[in-house]
Simulated assay, not measured.
Amino acid sequence: MFLDNISKDTKVIYEKSYPLFLEGGKDAVLLIHGYTGTPHDMYYLGQRLNESGFTVCIPRLPGHGTNSIDFLNSNWKDWLRRVVDSYIELNSKYENVYISGLSMGGVLTLLLSAQFNPKKIALAAPALEAKDWRLKLTPVIKLFVKKLNRRKRINYEEEELNKLAREYWDYDWPPKAADLYKLQRLAKRRLNRIKSNTLIIVSKKDGAVPLSVADTIKNNISSKVIKTIVLEKSPHVVVNDIEKEKVADEIIKFFKGNE
């Protein structure tokens, strides 16, 4: 059964991988991390939003931040259900609930917006499209291969991040990439249902998501207010890298504005 595939020793690896909830004002922001990421990617943005008066919720997606076996035993339905529940809980208590997602979190944000119609959403490097052409092949590749070694391995100053890298980032995961591809297809079919005021942030230096994703979203959603920010220097994790201050400033301004 499902529980048999989860080790008794499973733990959250990194203290910043824990979900984060910061009580603030009457308006709340749901922040959604990306594929193989953890809440720590969203901590800086969350703290900035909270300092600006927002209540902030950053859930941990199932299978993320623990270990690769746990990751392989999670799927797109688990990830989507977690953010649906988080949105419903916030929307039951706070006057407005805005949503911002990074990468796959941006795809989940689009799906939530199509269903619940929040007033505003902010998409950070939304992985509705990918530069890696192999993603479209993963529904077939996953039948034969569970993981593939990556040629380039990165070493981090913090040992906990190295542990996460050894569990997640040193490999490609065809079965889970196929789940991401499934979410992309679901979101693309629902783009015309989205009416939320939308901020799209993309970067010229993003190695994972093409700039063209901004046009794909703009040309297909039904929102009256759509704003695009193009960064010059940031790699993929735009909310927690070289231009994170600018990203936070733009999202705060958008959520606090009169759009």
Rank of each mutant, 00 (worst) to 15 (best):
G257I: 01
P126D: 02
I69W: 13
R185H: 12
E159D: 09
L199Y: 01
Y35L: 13
I226R: 01
K11F: 09
L61E: 10
T138Q: 06
L61V: 02
G24L: 04
C57E: 10
Y35H: 13
I69F: 14
L80S: 04
I99F: 08
L90K: 07
L231D: 03
R82S: 12
I141N: 00
T216Q: 12
T55G: 06
S7R: 14
P126Q: 00
P175K: 03
K244D: 08
K205N: 08
R60S: 13
K246F: 11
R166A: 13
A165H: 00
K146C: 08
G106C: 05
V247A: 11
F254E: 06
S222P: 12
A178G: 01
K119S: 13
K26T: 00
R153H: 10
R151G: 15
N73W: 06
T198G: 06
S103H: 09
T216P: 14
V202D: 07
F116D: 09
N162K: 04
A187F: 11
M104G: 08
I32L: 10
D70V: 00
D78R: 06
R60W: 06
K119T: 04
K218L: 09
L191M: 12
D27N: 05
I141T: 00
I6K: 14
R82H: 10
F54L: 01
Y14D: 10
K205T: 04
S52E: 05
P126R: 00
E23C: 10
E159R: 09
L49G: 11
K227G: 01
W169R: 05
E89T: 06
I251S: 12
P39E: 01
A178K: 00
Y171V: 00
A187M: 05
R48E: 14
L3F: 15
E23L: 14
L22Q: 09
L128D: 08
L180Q: 01
G63Q: 09
R189A: 14
K188I: 10
I99L: 09
G257A: 06
V107Q: 05
Q115D: 10
S86N: 07
R82W: 11
G65R: 15
N219V: 04
Y44F: 12
V202Q: 06
S234D: 02
T38G: 15
V230M: 11
A208S: 15
G37W: 05
E23V: 02
S17V: 03
Y35C: 09
S86E: 07
E23Q: 13
N155P: 08
I226L: 04
V238N: 06
N162P: 05
K253F: 03
I32F: 12
I121W: 04
P139D: 05
V97S: 11
G101K: 04
S68D: 11
K8A: 15
Y18G: 15
R151E: 06
P210M: 04
